[in-house]
Design a protein around this nucleic acid. Structure first.
Length: 1030
RNA sequence: GGGCAGCUAGCUCAGUUGGUUAGAGCGCUACGUUCACACCGUAGAGGUCACAGGUUCGAAUCCUGUGCUGCCCA
């Protein structure tokens, strides 16, 4: 056979493995024929990545974890489906394409028109979907690629229309006015989740509104303050608190309570606030009381600039403790004012056009942008003498996450889905445990959010998405509609409340465009992207059709997702899944952490701190990436991932920082060569070599792959020229040598632990268990031990068989985490040990791919705690000898004599391990037993109740040994002192469990013995030194 | 403002119902290219478990409070 390369070549292996898996379609899941039992089923739908852009490390994590579950279940014999696909991500994708359109062609979407823009976005989608699916395949994701879906494809669209129609028929869809977050750049409403707040420098303008016909004792004007003076054009009232005295008293009471609990330092500030409050009561309260009376009397003030008369109203939104105590009310352009407007039945005047310019309501300011209108309004107020003063102030300003432009609150007609009825089943599903969330603390956020049952605004003024399947028609009668659409189960209509009709259809188009000569006008809006996402588990399986897939794979088994979309997505899937199918969409939800950068910030495209997983896959391998990600997926917290750019010229690592992370090119500080980053766009930059973003975190995984590879090389060399390895017999395990029984026992425990970790979604633990076992136990211990046995014809075959068994089992257990290297090795073993058979294998030849191999389920009888303890003693003895060698600087290849003093039973156990000890510790054992001892002054160590003597004769550095022993003994004395104190404490001995107390006693005895030995050795050494010196 | 989480070695993180002398990987130090692997081996150094109280025979672990960080919701 050909010699294996010394290093594992991940690039070649990845290509080979993907080819094999594709040719076998090993990732494919077939639904059983109708009427036949499905057997054990495991199904997952992928959280569809947005086609906005390429995948980053967060996606790599999410998909690695899913693949771990999927590959493990497949090997465990489940009928396993992993449904892949992507999300059209409505606003996000449209925003990206629109921004590019503007930057590159200076065109707006209106220049292009609806159809052309949508065509552009489809082109973008094709490009990124391809890229994303490619990245997933590079990662090793074993999705059923034949089933790939897209949230906007025909199948999903049909599901969306059907689901919407059903909601419509149930009266759960309503049309209503709502103050929305208006993005004036994209000209659409965006959800609260798509808004971020940023502090910006602004001003606080104090404006006087004149009182109309002031009477004796009444003020001539009231002053209000605002950060947005142009909104006064839409004012419909000025509010004052209905009972300012009581409000002030309430505030004062709160402050006093706070002061009583506050630290002295804070009390100063509170005292100042209290003084201010007292001053207000003295100076301002009488005026506010007057204004409250005037409000109740229905008095009015005159709106500056426009001259409109608007009422004074009494409303608790006005805070007497702030500013002038009065506040202007602009219901159509401020969320709080909107509430006041509803409470006080005020008119709501919208002063904005969708593009952010002022409309006719703004009178002389019509046509101006908000910014220009603001300047003009301020100037005019000043000229009119209505501007009292201006303050500088920092303002929390809402921005659109998509366009990065300021959000304008805006009153608009929207479609809503009523949640009152829909939310309850989704709440019950989690509360009752039918849907289980891991870790379970996340259930609370889910329940809290749903319990608010706020209506879901689902319309978006976008062009990219599922068009709302509603048509509007006026001037017709219900009879006309019945005549046109009666008998169509797919069509339903309701009154629009003002004489017209809304017609909803689950078909792509209505059978007619007019009713009684009146045109049906389709709603221009599209649905919130989360609407189609909410249907993902059942729409991908073919709903509303009763497909075999839906029958077999729905409800799905597990949803794997990041915690931040628990409400946005997970909750809505439960809602819609239950509504549409009557069943929950998944039984369990596995929540995983987020990956943060070195500053603890979330990775995002806009920050430029993301990492392309393909960088890592190319440089270190998909397995290295997956191993590292799995190892980071703990239950508790997010993970920091400091990232470096790797110089392509010299390999030097350049720390990624806030300064350099968005740069298209960087110069290597070591070799001076420039390289490009993922942000390069200019031709000059693109011509440079790429400096991939990497992290040392992935190197452990790469090293691990290589370790496995080299262990394989060793095993294959051992197999060369020997008898073929047949089935692993139970007899071998029961009566084999200690090392073999130990390995079998460990394989059994590790397989059990690994299976449990997978069941409980403890991915990091899974990685740790397997890494530790493969490296420290199989490679460092068992493999080393096998060396002398392989040299002995009497023990050779047995050692070979167990080496293969161990490696085979490790490969299978590791396959879900590291599919490529395990597959590559599996292929090697098929050649070298193709006749092997593990007890858990069925009849017939071993599977062609490890993907289809059986998950290890070693029999309980393999586990033997006594054997594991014995083996522990052996390892401890070897460790003790090595320690002596290391601290005395004995050259590694120098064989030295050693003796082990051990109790008879222990010595009996160690006896067969003689060659192993000699080989692993490079010693020659001169004695082993209760009477064994060393020459005077021999260097000693104690391990697992055995004393190890190594006679180094002249090799010993006596001074160093004396110093070390002194330090050691002092340390032991410290422990003894602590133990004696503990055991001398009567409450401890009386109250602690007997087992704990006796363990402490045993330890004390052991420590005392150790000290005695240490002191004896020290004395002997001193004697020797004195002799040598004399 | 409310909620959740985190604070453990230089860095990134484990630590299962409270119980030996708190662990891993990377990094660091010393020694070693030996026949699977220098992407390696052997050994070592390195921690007042954020801080302050409390419960307990015993606290990284349970309780209370404080500080800082992150996220979610208002």
């Amino acid at each position: 056979m050909t010699e294996l390369a010394k290093h594992y070549d991940h690039q070649a292996a990845q290509a080979r493995c993907r080819g094999l898996w594709d040719s076998l379609r090993a990732w494919h899941a077939e639904a059983p024929a109708p009427g036949t039992p499905a057997g054990r089923v495991f199904s997952i739908v992928i959280p569809p990545p947005n086609v906005t852009g390429a995948l980053h490390l967060g996606h790599a994590l999410n998909n690695t974890l899913q693949d771990i579950l999927v590959r493990a279940r497949r090997m465990q014999g489940y009928r396993t489906l992993w449904m892949p696909g992507t999300d059209h991500a409505g606003i996000a994708t449209q925003a990206v394409v629109e921004r590019r359109l503007l930057e590159e062609e200076k065109l707006s979407r209106h220049d292009l028109g609806r159809e052309a823009l949508v065509a552009r976005i489809w082109a973008w989608k094709e490009q990124y979907e391809k890229r994303i699916l490619g990245q997933l395949r590079d990662l090793g994701a074993s999705c059923d690629w034949d089933r790939t879906r897209f949230t906007l494809d025909e199948q999903c669209a049909a599901a969306v229309r059907e689901a919407f129609l059903r909601l419509f028929k149930r009266g759960l869809v309503r049309r209503g006015k709502r103050l929305v977050n208006w993005d004036t750049f994209l000209q659409t409403a965006v959800s609260d989740d798509e808004v971020f707040h940023e502090e910006v420098k602004g001003h606080f303008w104090h404006i006087r509104y004149d009182v109309i016909d002031p009477q004796a004792g009444e003020p001539l004007s009231v002053t209000v303050a605002t950060t947005r003076p142009e909104t006064l054009l839409g004012d419909t009232a000025v509010a004052v608190h209905p009972d300012p005295a009581a409000a002030l008293a309430g505030v004062e009471q709160e402050l006093r309570a706070k002061r009583a609990a506050a630290a002295a330092k804070e009390q100063v500030a509170i005292d100042a606030a209290l003084e201010d409050l007292a001053a207000r009561r003295r100076d301002l309260l009488p005026l506010l009381e007057t204004l409250a009376r005037m409000a109740r009397a229905g008095r009015q003030v005159r709106l500056p600039l426009l001259g409109r008369a608007i009422p004074l109203v009494a409303d608790e939104w006005a805070k007497p403790e702030l500013g002038s105590g009065c506040v202007k009310i602009t219901p159509a352009h401020d969320p709080n004012d909107y509430d006041v407007g509803r409470r006080q039945s005020l008119p709501m005047i919208n002063i904005l056009e969708p593009n952010g310019t002022l409309n006719a309501e703004a009178g002389p300011y019509q046509g101006l942008t908000i910014k220009k209108a603001r300047d003009r309004v301020v100037a005019d107020l000043e000229a009119a003498g209505q501007l009292e003063r201006v303050e500088d102030r920092l303002i929390e300003l809402a921005h659109s996450d998509r366009s990065k432009t300021p959000i304008e609150p805006y009153l608009a007609d929207q479609w809503f889905i009523r949640m009152a009825e829909l939310a309850q089943p989704a709440i019950d599903a989690v509360a009752s445990g039918r849907v289980r969330i891991y870790p379970d603390r996340y259930a609370r956020g889910y329940l809290d959010w749903l319990s608010e049952k706020r209506d879901w605004p689902v319309s978006r003024q976008l062009w990219w998405g599922h068009r709302i399947p509603i048509w509007h028609v006026t001037g017709v009668t219900e009879g006309d509609l019945a005549a046109a659409f009666g008998g169509h189960d797919s069509i339903h209509w309701t009154s629009d409340g003002s004489g017209g009709w809304f017609v909803c259809s689950s078909a792509e188009n209505l059978p007619t465009e007019t009713v009684a000569g009146k045109a049906l006008v389709r709603d221009p809006d599209v649905l919130d992207t989360w609407f189609s996402s909410a249907l993902w588990p059942h729409s991908t399986l073919g709903w509303p059709a009763a497909t075999p897939e839906l029958a077999a794979f729905y409800p799905t088994s597990t949803l794997v997702t990041s915690r931040d979309i628990l409400t946005l997505w997970v909750a809505r899937m439960v809602i819609m899944g239950v509504f549409d199918t009557g069943e929950i969409p998944f039984h369990e939800v596995s929540i995983h952490p987020k990956i943060l950068d070195r500053y603890g910030e979330t990775m995002s495209k806009s920050k430029g701190n993301g990492v392309d997983p393909v960088d890592v896959i190319e440089a270190l391998g998909a397995d290295a990436l997956r191993f590292a990600l799995a190892g980071m997926a703990t239950e508790t917290q997010d993970v920091r991932m400091p990232v470096d750019f790797q110089c392509p010229a010299c390999g030097h690592l350049v720390e990624q920082t806030t300064q350099n992370r968005t740069k298209p090119r960087l110069d290597c500080p070591k070799c001076g060569q420039p390289f490009r980053t993922q942000w390069a766009t200019s031709e000059a930059d693109l011509a440079l070599p790429r400096g991939p973003a990497v992290s040392e975190k992935f190197e452990a995984g790469r090293n691990f792959s290589n370790k496995l590879w080299n262990a394989t090389r060793f095993v294959l060399m051992a197999l060369e020229g020997g008898e073929p390895v047949g089935p692993i017999s139970a007899d071998v395990v029961a009566h084999g040598e200690l090392a073999d029984r130990w390995l079998a026992s460990r394989l059994a425990s590790v397989a059990r632990e690994a299976s449990k970790a997978i069941d409980e979604y403890r991915y990091a633990e899974l990685a740790r268990i397997l890494y530790g076992f493969a490296w420290d136990e199989f490679c460092s211990a068992y493999l080393e031990l096998s060396k002398p046995r392989l040299a002995d014809p009497a023990t050779r075959d047995q050692a070979r068989a167990m080496l293969v068994a161990g490696l085979d089992t490790i490969l299978r257990l590791l396959h879900p985490i590291m599919p490529f290297v395990t597959e590559e090795i599996w292929q090697q073993l098929r050649v070298a040990a193709g006749d092997r058979r593990m007890p858990w294998d069925g009849p017939g030849p071993l599977s062609e791919s490890i993907m289809q191999a059986r998950w290890p389920t070693p029999p309980e009888t393999w586990t033997d705690e006594r054997t594991e303890r014995q083996f522990g003693t052996f390892l401890a003895v070897v460790g003790a000898i090595r320690e002596i060698r290391a601290r005395q600087n004995v050259p590694p290849r120098t064989k030295v004599p050693a003796a082990i003093r051990a109790a008879a039973d222990v010595a009996d156990l160690l006896e067969p391990m003689r060659p192993a000890i000699e080989s692993m510790a490079t010693v020659e054992l001169t004695a082993l037993g209760p009477a064994a001892g060393g020459a005077a002054g021999a260097t000693t160590a104690t391990a697992a109740g055995c004393d190890v003597f190594v006679d180094l004769a002249d090799l010993v550095d006596v001074d160093a040994e004396v110093a070390r022993l002194e330090k050691d003994n002092a340390k032991t004395e410290g422990f003894i002192k602590a133990k004696r104190a503990k055991l001398g404490n009567e409450t401890f001995t009386a109250r602690a469990p007997e087992a704990v107390v006796s363990a402490e006693r045993a330890q004390l005895a052991e420590l005392e013995e150790r000290l005695a030995k240490g002191e004896a050795t020290l004395a002997a050494l001193r004697t020797r030194k004195a002799n040598a010196g004399g």
